[in-house]
Design a protein around this nucleic acid. Sequence first.
DNA 1: CGATTTTGTTGTAATTCCAGTCTAAATCGC
DNA 2: GCGATTTAGACTGGAATTACAACAAAATCG
Lengths: 411, 411
Amino acid sequence: MKDPIGGTSRVGSKGRNLEDLRRQNLSTVLSLVHANRSMTRADLTHATGLNRSTVATIVTELESLDLVTVSQPVDTKRVGRPSTVIGPSPRHIAVAVHPDKDAIAIGVVAMGGRVLREFRFDVEHAPSAVHTVNTLHALVRGLELSDGGTVLGIGIGVPGLVGARDGVVRVAPHLDWRDEPLVDMVASATGLPTWAANDATCAVVAEGQFGQGVDEENVVYLNGGAGGIGGGVIVGGQLLSGENGYSGELGHMLVNSDGGLCHCGAIGCLETEVNRDDLLGVVGLGDAEANLLEQRLRDAYGTDQDVTELVDRQLTYLGVAMRNIVNIFNPGVIVLGGFLGALRNATDARLQDDVERSALAGPASEVRIVSSTLEDNVLIGAGELVFRTILRDPTSASTGIMPGAERVAAG
Amino acid sequence: MKDPIGGTSRVGSKGRNLEDLRRQNLSTVLSLVHANRSMTRADLTHATGLNRSTVATIVTELESLDLVTVSQPVDTKRVGRPSTVIGPSPRHIAVAVHPDKDAIAIGVVAMGGRVLREFRFDVEHAPSAVHTVNTLHALVRGLELSDGGTVLGIGIGVPGLVGARDGVVRVAPHLDWRDEPLVDMVASATGLPTWAANDATCAVVAEGQFGQGVDEENVVYLNGGAGGIGGGVIVGGQLLSGENGYSGELGHMLVNSDGGLCHCGAIGCLETEVNRDDLLGVVGLGDAEANLLEQRLRDAYGTDQDVTELVDRQLTYLGVAMRNIVNIFNPGVIVLGGFLGALRNATDARLQDDVERSALAGPASEVRIVSSTLEDNVLIGAGELVFRTILRDPTSASTGIMPGAERVAAG
DNA sequence: CGATTTTGTTGTAATTCCAGTCTAAATCGC
DNA sequence: GCGATTTAGACTGGAATTACAACAAAATCG
């Protein structure tokens, strides 16, 4: 738009009308029910600050949209009339997918972050995009036959760079994917609206909503997987996605100028210096026994010299990354997943001490460093990608699903 | 709050009422006028998507709050009735302060990001907090006598870590400040509401609003100053402030494992490896001649061996930092200020090439690397800290200023 | 100089949230 | 066991905000 007076004017945020107001309140209430899994209507009144009668009409509308269930009050042993219980409806579900090096995981996720069913399809070699799509497609067809609810859409967590706007997987090194138009492929095959994002990004969304990041505004998630280290960040309660959804690649931060060559082409990246295979090797575990890593490390650390040296070296470099993260983001909590969580747990407070000593005193003083305890955080987060639309605008649920009409990607 | 059914419930975002709706629309309109410096009422109608009559009532209310001025239409040579021009009122002003190693800069800033007057008080040694407060206090008393408008408050950009909640300067190394309750000091002395933040944070706010970051959602600002390197980040259109306002300390990122010891205690920080004094020294300039640096570097780079070596080394390390930044934030633009801007300009596209080669292909492909051209970006940004309150809630202007009543800090 | 285009102004309608009143359903205290 | 107290749901009327439509005003166009 041209401004005849002051040059080019900027199109700012839009104005709001009464419809937006109602939409926002519907969204607030539904999001609360989603986040808390279950609340009484009185709780909602207090949490929102809205009038009782307003909450009543909003809940009624959400109920008529089949988004919440209203059930009888439960025995609270408190004075006064008991309040009706509002829960997320199990009718609207999302299908979450996590293709990885060794398996394709697919989950059926309901609102409230509940994984209703989970499937794991092991693969010998990293699955291709087509393989992933076919597996998913087959499962979705089966689900539709068995009924059980409305599939709102499909959310995919990919170990690689995913374009936020186009849903194209720019590169997924450990799957050997390049420029795969994943969202379009899935949407065409299944006819369902589809979203995709980096898997660690999905994980941090789940951690922020249901895991270690609950009640936190600033959360950094670092995942140590088979292939490498991924990152996801929430700042000010909002997901950090960047210009194209590529942000949060914390695994490719310099931690050692004299380090090895990373597959990304750079030297001394975090994921080159800190990796799972070396740890598994030194304690004599195979790829499939990664779940035993924490115990083995705890047993050998401090007694076995090879293990101690390796762990110390990796902790040092992990500490450098975390120092940077603390200085850059000033987060309230850093959540470690995968083998990074094992590394932390096996060495007690060492990482925390490290960071408090090396980072700037201000941001270092209040950061909590914890390990993830939320199972399936990638699947839950991928489900959140799907639910996000309906949480933002609950009235969109009424429009029904137009197969293939919507193909969206999210970072 | 306890949830009798599902454990502890979370207090989510509040519900909205009609008052909030109106507040939000007032805010939207005022923010547009502020950002564009001047718009017609018809422009506002298009930009907001609101009805003409609604915009009319909103503008009338803003005018009665003395926040905007309504003036006669100007000759646009376009068909149709010309629209009235709405501009930010010059009556509400902010006093912006930037204490630094060599001087205390103070500006009188009006809405629309206009620096009405600017003062510079040179100092021999880094000024103390008390010195800064006294200088500011004296100037504010003078301003009040000369009238000219309502001083909404005071915004301070500090080269150091500033607590977002308490307004305490945790540490400002180059000023030799530690745990100075700056906001409280200034608020008590002047009786005016006061905000403080890191100076690079102020700068990125200004760049995002009026400088190189206009129309960008993801902006990283890196400033090379006399003391060191500061950073500020905008993600998704929002200022990155972190848990306590300490975020954005990009100067303390590891760029060289074999580097020097930084005053922060760590090894090989960006601000240790890339610094102004070395550059000034190699081209034979004094501290006060920093403004000549760019030309000198351009002349000597590629011809003088010492200069070329030093510049190449600093570019390499700056490139490492920018690689990290690109991988972490996936920004649309990186703005370089101070001597970093000079370094970039003197070496043409080298930095851009460097980053495109070393960062991940996805985020690297679309980032612009530019130098700041906005004079006084710290002062303008410090002013924004003050205006932010009134931009968010224009009705708060009517309450008038209660001396000493409000003491707030912003990250 | 009238036709066209665009914008300001005004009164009405629709929608939303709130406040107050009455009713329902639990616990508390005797 | 039963009334008092407490808390929440249901309902109705009122205030505020935006949208809409019709008309007036002020420019350009032909």
